[in-house]
Computed example of a mutant assay.
Amino acid sequence: MHDLIIRNAQIVDGTGSPAQSGDVAIDDGKITKLGSGLGRGGEEINADGLTLAPGIIDLHTHYDAQLTWDASASPSTGLGVTTTLIGNCGFTIAPCKPEHRDLTLRNLTHVEGMSLDALRTGVDWDFESYPEYLELLERRGMVPNVASYCGHSSLRMWVLGEEASTRAATPDEVAQMKSILVEALSVGAVGFATSTLEQHNGENGVPMPSRLADEHEMFE
């Protein structure tokens, strides 16, 4: 007997093969058999009329803020997404000092078209550092798997303050950003994200902080 059998599904296996009708057996949390005549399951689900497919990995999202109040990352999970990558373009909300919170949100409304009222009402600011942000997500219990970049614009804002959108960083400031990035990577960040696109402007058309990075900052 299998732990679980999902019966009568239209199975799309992710290999590019045509969908096929059949059953899926699961044991110890892993798929063990596909097809028909799989025997009985301790639990059985009738998926007649439904499609069964591998979870979708969404590699470019901006759920950084929303996840602090919506652990389901709606509507993505309802559309089959099981893993979401946040922090893209370097437009993140961590690390973030209290005095920079509202500017960070106002920038997001411009560069990503988010509702400022929703952000101000919804974001749970029970963090400042990047490790504290990941701890918050862990406590809330995310529905999808979440992978997170450490964002360049947030690093610049943390170190340079509001000057982050007006000038290049000094060597000492670059060193501070590197130290914060190393810490972020050590606690679970999957990488570093940045943007130099001319279209990426925040409040009042001011460039997003990462656009002010010079070659030394980018490659140091």
Results as ranks from 00 to 15, higher is better:
D70M: 01
A47K: 04
I93E: 04
R106A: 11
M177N: 02
A19Y: 08
A9N: 07
A168M: 08
D58V: 00
S195A: 09
W125Y: 00
G113P: 11
G87A: 03
T109F: 04
R106K: 15
D102T: 10
G55L: 02
I57G: 00
S17D: 11
L155W: 02
V24K: 08
S76R: 02
D124F: 06
G202A: 09
S179C: 01
G42W: 13
N204L: 05
L4F: 10
H100G: 01
T77M: 07
G41M: 10
L119S: 10
N46G: 07
A147R: 15
A73C: 15
D28P: 01
M1G: 11
S76P: 00
V174S: 12
D27W: 03
G49I: 01
K178I: 10
P209R: 00
P98H: 13
A94C: 13
G16F: 06
V24L: 14
I26P: 10
F192S: 10
D13G: 08
V190M: 14
R139I: 08
T170C: 12
E173P: 08
G14R: 09
L34G: 03
A71Y: 06
P18T: 08
N201T: 13
E183M: 04
H60M: 05
T51F: 03
H100D: 14
A164P: 05
D117A: 14
N201L: 15
T121W: 11
E215M: 10
G202S: 10
K30D: 02
P75F: 02
T51P: 01
P54V: 02
P144A: 02
M208A: 03
L155S: 01
P54L: 04
G205V: 04
T82F: 02
D117E: 15
E215R: 12
P144V: 02
V174W: 04
D27H: 05
F219N: 13
T83P: 03
G205A: 04
T51R: 02
T194I: 09
L185A: 12
A65K: 01
L79V: 00
E203H: 13
L38K: 06
I86S: 06
E128V: 05
N107Y: 07
L38H: 14
G22L: 09
F127R: 11
V206W: 00
A9P: 12
L212I: 05
T84P: 00
T32Q: 11
K30S: 04
L34R: 10
I57C: 08
P207H: 05
T109S: 15
S195W: 00
T84D: 01
S76N: 10
E183P: 07
V143Q: 13
I5S: 08
E138S: 14
Y130F: 15
T104F: 05
G35A: 05
G35K: 09
G151A: 07
A193I: 11
F192R: 08
W158R: 07
G80E: 10
M177K: 02
A147H: 13
H216A: 15
T92G: 13
E135R: 10
E220L: 04
V159I: 15
A47V: 07
E138M: 09
G202L: 14
L137M: 09
H152G: 06
R167M: 05
H200N: 15
W125Q: 03
P207N: 06
C96E: 06
D48Q: 14
M218T: 13
L134K: 08
I57P: 00
E43R: 11
Y63M: 13
L136Q: 04
